[in-house]
Amino acid sequence: MNGLMRLDQMTVVVVEDDRSSRESLSMLLESEGARVVAAADAEEGVDAVLRTAPDAVVCDIDLPAMDGFYLIQRLRDDEIRNDRLPAVAVAITGHADETYRLRSIGEGFQHFMRKPAEPERLVTLLADAVGARAVG
């Protein structure tokens, strides 16, 4: 990228069932300074978000057993119960259908990105959104 660690001190949970996608997302975010906790499915992802109270979550929608909508509902419920600032949540999916974007926002994701995620766009989105969250 540009040599600056734009995600320094940020904890990001990445939930992606495709191993190579999960690893490349993790490496990208770590190269920008983020502490990444990676999960292969929604159940692992829920455990990770409840345990770490992350600054951000990058979550695939189509996951085995339980989908990304299940994860975001659990995260938002936990944030309300514990009076925590909401994590920035980015839904990622291979679906190009506008219905997925609308449902993602309605379920609690603030951002939606189609796969493959553009690295620069994802890092900028996370840096800006978490930065705004910290200020606001």
Rank of each mutant, 00 (worst) to 15 (best):
G33R: 12
E16G: 03
A40M: 11
A39C: 13
A34Y: 00
A40Y: 08
R22E: 10
L25D: 09
V15N: 01
V13H: 07
A39L: 12
V12K: 11
R19A: 14
E32D: 13
V14R: 03
S26Y: 07
D18A: 15
T11Q: 11
R35T: 15
A40R: 04
D18V: 15
A40E: 13
V12F: 07
S21W: 12
A39D: 14
S20D: 12
M10P: 02
M10L: 15
V37D: 04
S24L: 14
D8S: 15
A39W: 13
G33Y: 00
R35F: 03
Q9W: 10
D8L: 14
E30K: 07
S21Y: 11
E32I: 11
M27D: 15
V36R: 07
A42I: 05
A40L: 06
R19C: 13
S24V: 11
V37S: 09
V14C: 02
S31W: 10
E32Y: 13
R22C: 10
G33P: 00
G45E: 03
V49N: 04
V13Q: 05
D47E: 15
M27P: 01
E32C: 10
V12P: 00
V13G: 09
S20V: 15
A48C: 08
E32R: 08
E23K: 04
L25N: 09
L25I: 11
E30Q: 15
R35M: 09
R22W: 08
D8P: 03
M27K: 14
V49G: 07
E43H: 03
V14D: 06
L28A: 04
Q9M: 10
G45K: 02
R19G: 14
E44T: 01
R19S: 14
T11G: 00
R22V: 09
V36S: 07
V49M: 06
M27L: 15
A42G: 12
L7G: 00
D8C: 12
E32Q: 14
L7N: 09
V49R: 05
D47Y: 12
S20N: 13
A34M: 01
M27Y: 10
E44P: 01
A34G: 02
A48S: 01
V49L: 08
S20W: 10
L29A: 07
V12R: 11
V36Q: 06
D8M: 15
R35E: 11
V13Y: 02
E23C: 01
D17N: 14
A34K: 03
S31G: 10
Q9V: 10
D47W: 06
A40D: 10
L28R: 05
A39T: 12
A38Y: 09
G33D: 00
Q9T: 14
D17P: 00
D47M: 11
V46T: 09
V14G: 02
V13A: 12
G33S: 05
E43N: 06
E23N: 11
V37K: 09
A40C: 05
V12D: 12
S24H: 05
S26M: 08
G33C: 03
